[in-house]
């Protein structure tokens, strides 16, 4: 930083709320709530861990964010969309701005790494002449260029998860939503994946990651939300 700017206060990064939940309730069967009165604001550029024991409601909360489920009460706004009132036709528009990653990778088994990424870009009407360079760039960023022509079954769990991240990343999302991305891989690979997500976050993408691994989250020193039986019991860091 140069000497002249020392007198002026440091520029505050824009803190726009990117996700807002207000009084959100979600019931599955019967009246046993999966989520109870969730109030949560996530800002642009945040890195957020979602912690909690199994059945605490982490997945449910994430599913609400990408409009896979609707809440039974409350308000949800994501990237300016009101998820309760948005038209069904707008859902694809919302999802194009989200990168979703799962514990079980969900790669298409009959397609190579390259084809898995191409599939996504084609599905959202990316111009043909952009496809190859976007894929190249993304694979490069994750150090997976050499596996471009491999099929998922030829890859290790960690590598498969990297491809899944590449698939989420290739469409340049505003938010990465990862549901236990390290759940199925060994600790060393998990560390790797976490570093990649931190990298992505560092470049300006908001990341929300659900995990069982409280220790891993604590080490990372980012915001941590803890759910217990559908309630937010802690919001720290």
């Amino acid at each position: 930083m140069s000497a002249e700017t020392n007198n002026t206060p440091p520029t505050v990064p824009p803190v726009t709320p990117i996700i807002e939940l207000n009084g959100v309730f979600k019931y599955y069967q019967g009246d046993w709530p999966a989520l109870t009165d969730i109030n949560l604001t996530v800002y642009h550029g945040d890195f957020l861990f979602l912690l909690g024991a199994t059945g605490a409601g982490k997945t449910t909360l994430l599913r609400l964010l990408y409009r896979q489920e609707l809440p039974d009460a409350g308000e949800i706004k994501v990237l300016g969309y009101d998820l309760l009132t948005m038209k069904e036709k707008e859902i694809p528009m919302l999802r194009r701005k989200l990168g979703i990653i799962f514990q079980d990778f969900r790669l298409l088994p009959e397609r190579t790494v390259y084809e898995n990424l191409e599939f996504v870009l084609r599905a959202i009407n990316t111009q043909s002449d952009m496809i190859s360079s976007k894929i190249q760039e993304t694979l490069n960023q994750l150090g997976m260029t050499h596996k471009k022509n491999s099929y998922p079954y030829e890859l290790s769990g960690g590598e498969q998860q990297k491809v899944a991240i590449a698939r989420a990343l290739v469409k340049s999302p505003d938010i990465i939503i990862a549901d236990e991305p390290t759940g199925n891989i060994d600790p060393k690979a998990a560390e790797d994946i976490l570093n990649i997500l931190k990298d992505i976050n560092y470049q300006g993408t908001t990341v929300i990651m659900a995990t069982h691994d409280a220790e891993l989250a604590e080490r990372t020193r980012r915001r941590r939300i803890t759910l217990d039986a559908g309630r937010v019991v802690r919001d720290e860091g």
Partner: peptide, 17 residues
């Protein structure tokens, strides 16, 4: 169905699907 789910998740339009 696997492909369709991925397409829906990444924001493919209904027409594309």
């Amino acid at each position: 169905s696997e492909e369709i789910q991925i397409m829906e998740l990444v924001g493919a339009s209904r027409i594309a699907i």
